[in-house]
Design a binder for these strands. Structure first.
Length: 424
RNA sequence: AGAGAGGUGGCAGAGUGGUCGAAUGCGGCGGAUUCGAAAUCCGCUAUACGGGCAACCGUAUCGGGGGUUCGAAUCCCUUCCUCUCUGCCA
């Protein structure tokens, strides 16, 4: 959520940013927000002064009652009735205006950082750099959905039987590989200074609002109506909400957390081409890294996160590239996003395995996550997160890129984690 | 799930209709004392919104919402949450 003060003081910058994100009704929405803000201030002032007078009269009435001047008290009471009516209508209007303003603010996406390229779709994303070597596969190379059957390591049909499509069952070396990757990612994050968190995987409504899944993306989360809890779509939600409604001491900053959780996504409406096998699931495993920093350090932190993720891909010996997303392809809440993709050799396409974003104050404003800046004023912090990493597509690429007639050779870094060096 | 208790400042914990944004203690910050420290003493120590260049002033907030009253932390209604015991259970 953008801050009203920013919209008011930097209107042109806000409009330019919204345009870059291809937000359609920017001019009208911004004007409406500013207009509502004007009215809100007037109502507040009017309400407060009437209330101040009423408070003063109440004190006087108390004194008069005490001294036995009933008639005097009654005179003043008549005036308080008027004031009461006034404050009541003012506060009702105020609530209405605040609500309207809030609804408009929820609609506005975050402003993109200056470095975000112009563009509408994934085709306009900027390739920042590539790393690793694309493998030369044998002529009879198979996509991962064939390989997992061949080696009997992931079973979609069993998942369908016990739950539904998009809920794979990992077996044998497939299950062990999952566990190995999770441990590898967590260990690497810890070595990079992240504190490991194991959060709940159901969250309440307030947490959904805090990180921006609610109110808009309600349909994307699984919801337990009986207890009004949501299955998390990413551990970003619980881990960032740890700091909701907090004023964080400067010496605790930056906050660097990591956590492994399963992630649950309904993916309503997003099924179709290119979602075979492990490419898109309802439940998958992910290790997430989260940082909360002072505003002036957040881009440095984002670079560090991208470097960390790249390092993981290098250790896994996967060919990858780093993209800077264009204005039209970025998420609603982000100011700058880097996607990391790995080359899936048998499918012949890039697969997104990580997304690292700086949300600046956009999430923090909803979360009310602040610190005390120089001079004693509270100020919003910047929040960031990135996948480090999401497992399914990593597994897909590992299987496809490393297939041989003699089995699948795993990268050296995983051998001790798996307890084996080859699948098959 | 059944029965009971309770939600007050960073924490602990008073406060049952006005003088309460709220005693006291702890913690934190500043100062005095000290060669330095401990101990002791003094002062300060919530957030949001509005007004003001500022000092500062006003308003709201004692889980949330509503009500009674000139006036509510305090009374009433409602809702959420937490804890204890019993039950069930990894």
């Amino acid at each position: 959520m953008l801050q009203v003060s920013v919209i008011k003081e930097q209107t042109d910058r806000v409009l330019a940013g919204l345009a870059k994100k291809h937000y359609k009704t920017a001019a009208a929405d911004v004007a409406a927000i500013l207009d509502l803000d004007q009215r809100r201030r007037q109502l507040q002032t009017s309400h407060d002064s009437a209330q101040a007078e009423a408070n003063d009269l109440a004190r006087q009435i108390g004194q008069l009652m005490k001294s036995g001047d009933k008639a005097g008290a009654e005179t003043l009471k008549a005036r308080t009735a008027e004031l009461k009516q006034h404050t009541k209508t003012a506060s009702e209007e105020l609530a209405q205006v605040e609500h309207e303003q809030q609804q408009l603010l929820y609609k506005l996406p975050n402003l993109p950082h200056a470095s975000v390229p112009e563009g509408r779709s994934a085709a306009d994303n900027e390739v920042v750099r590539e790393g690793g070597q694309k493998p030369a596969l044998p002529a009879d190379a198979q996509p991962h959905w064939e390989l997992i059957k061949k080696y009997d390591i992931i079973d979609f049909d069993l998942g369908i039987k016990i739950t539904g499509a998009g809920f794979p069952v990992y077996k044998n070396q497939g299950a062990r590989l999952q566990r190995a990757l999770i441990n590898f990612f967590l260990d690497e994050a810890r070595d990079a200074g992240y504190t490991e968190i194991q959060p709940p995987i159901l969250v309440n409504e307030a947490s959904g609002y805090g990180t921006g899944q609610l109110p808009d993306k309600e349909g994307q989360m699984y919801h337990d109506a009986q207890d009004n809890l949501y299955l998390i779509p990413t551990s970003e939600v619980p881990i960032t909400n740890l700091y909701r409604d907090e004023i964080i001491a400067t010496d605790k900053l930056p906050i660097k957390n990591t956590g492994y959780t399963p992630c649950f996504r309904r993916e309503a409406g997003s099924w179709g081409a290119d979602v075979r096998g492990l490419n898109r699931l309802h439940q998958f495993d992910k290790v997430e890294i989260v940082q909360i920093t002072e505003p002036e350090r957040s881009y440095e932190a984002l670079d560090g996160m991208v470097a960390h993720i790249e390092n993981l891909l290098q250790k896994l010996e996967l060919p990858y590239r780093v993209l800077r997303l264009c204005g039209g392809d970025m998420s609603f809440t982000s100011a700058l996003t880097y996607d990391l993709e790995v080359w899936s050799a048998a499918q012949g396409r890039w697969l997104e395995v990580s997304s690292a974003s700086n949300f600046e104050t956009y999430q923090a404003n909803r979360l009310k996550c602040r610190y005390r800046a120089e001079g004693g004023k509270t100020q919003l912090l910047h929040t960031l997160n990135g996948s480090a990493l999401a497992l399914p597509r990593i597994v897909a690429a590992l299987l496809e890129n490393n297939q041989t007639s003699d089995g699948i050779n795993l990268p050296a870094v995983l051998h001790s984690y798996c307890g084996f060096s080859k699948i098959g």
